[in-house]
């Protein structure tokens, strides 16, 4: 079938992109000013540790050998040792990843639910005053830097009114039986609300405008006219036919949004001291913790590229014209 061969070629492309980005990253970190060894071996390590790392990453060999080793290690999930945490990068990065995913999904779900409903409403109210006032407001929220929105929210709701904590993901001194218990605790939720709101405010504009444009376009389609001729209820016309078609690209945007937010959250995570992947990258770069920086960057990239692929997959699943090609 035509559909599956297209997906295979997209998958190959995805792997190609991942490999290329990893290679670029390898080069950037090896060409880093100073000794190439400095990039992976911290002088604070014990001599035995330094030796073992040198061997592991082939730091005393040619650049090409190092590259082969790097790729080999990467495939085994071995990203080296964090200078700062003195633990394997993979481990360190995974805790942060959970926090980032919680923040990303939380804000995206709120933003897309709100955006889709409002977008459909704006399409319905086309040419009215609601639209004339609403669209500029939406454009303004899209133009506001999300970290600045976060700062304003913090100043008002945390420091001003004292309703929410001023940063972090959990209150100090709390302990949980498991990572899941931590993420689904009330304490975590209280910490999550402000950063997620700041992000959601920034993110809702895209689904809103997308939904509005799509709805306007779909409402012009012949099949919507036909649905009216069939005497179907307004509900059936708007929801079952118009919205279902208009949602196709929005669903794709959602998947793409996950990929982009994981890296794009960097600033919001910093403002709210949210212990996520982005803030970890910033701290690692600032502290010259190169293995950790590289690991965090690679994970962010992997999520981005994977979600680009998922978006493609999702589109072909949701659109029967692609999913059920052939049979003509």
């Amino acid at each position: 079938m035509q559909g599956s061969s297209r997906l295979v070629s997209r998958l190959v492309l995805t792997l190609f992109v991942l490999w290329t980005v990893a290679t670029i990253l390898f080069l950037i970190f090896r060409l880093m000013p100073g000794s190439p060894l400095a990039a992976f071996v911290s002088p604070t390590f014990t001599p035995e540790q330094q030796d073992s790392l040198r061997r592991q990453f082939g730091l005393d060999r040619t650049l090409f050998d190092q590259y082969l080793l790097f790729i080999g290690n990467l495939l085994q999930g071995n990203l080296g040792e964090s200078f700062f945490y003195k633990r394997p990068v993979g481990e360190v990065v995974m805790t942060a990843f959970a926090n980032t995913i919680a923040l990303t999904l939380g804000s995206l779900i709120v933003a897309y639910t709100f955006g889709v409903l409002m977008g459909a409403m704006f399409a319905w109210k086309r040419g009215t005053r609601v639209e004339a006032v609403g669209i500029p407001i939406v454009l303004v929220t899209r133009a506001a830097p999300e970290f600045w929105l976060g700062m304003v929210l913090l100043a008002i709701f945390s420091f001003g009114l004292g309703w929410f904590p001023g940063g972090g993901a959990n209150s100090a001194g709390q302990s949980f039986s498991s990572e899941w218990a931590r993420i689904f605790s009330l304490d975590f939720l209280r910490h999550l609300i402000l950063p997620a709101t700041a992000l959601a405010l920034y993110l809702q504009g895209l689904p809103l405008l997308l939904m509005r444009t799509n709805m306007l376009e779909v409402m012009q389609e012949d099949f919507v006219t036909m649905a009216r001729m069939k005497g179907l209820s307004n509900w059936a016309i708007v929801i079952r036919h118009a919205a279902r078609n208009a949602l196709l690209p929005v669903a794709t945007a959602f998947a793409l949004g996950i990929g982009q937010s994981v890296g794009g959250n960097v600033v919001v995570e910093t403002v709210f001291s949210w212990p996520g992947l982005g803030r970890m990258l910033v701290d690692a770069v600032a502290a010259s913790d190169y293995p950790l920086a590289q690991g965090a960057f690679l994970l962010i990239t992997t999520v981005l590229v994977t979600m680009n692929f998922v978006a493609d997959l999702l589109y072909s699943l949701l659109d029967p014209r692609i999913a059920h090609a052939g049979h003509r």
């Binding site: 389609e221 012949d222 099949f223 006219t225 036909m226 649905a227 009216r228 001729m229 069939k230 005497g231 036919h241 279902r244 078609n245 196709l248 949701l318 659109d319 029967p320 014209r321």
Partner: peptide, 25 residues
């Protein structure tokens, strides 16, 4: 009028391609 549509008066469009919703069987 809506209740009479299709029960009393039905319509065959020029382009059934565009008149059928692409996402449903």
């Amino acid at each position: 009028m809506a209740s009479r549509r299709w029960r009393d008066i039905a319509f065959i469009p020029q382009s059934a391609m565009n008149s059928l919703d692409p996402v449903y069987r």
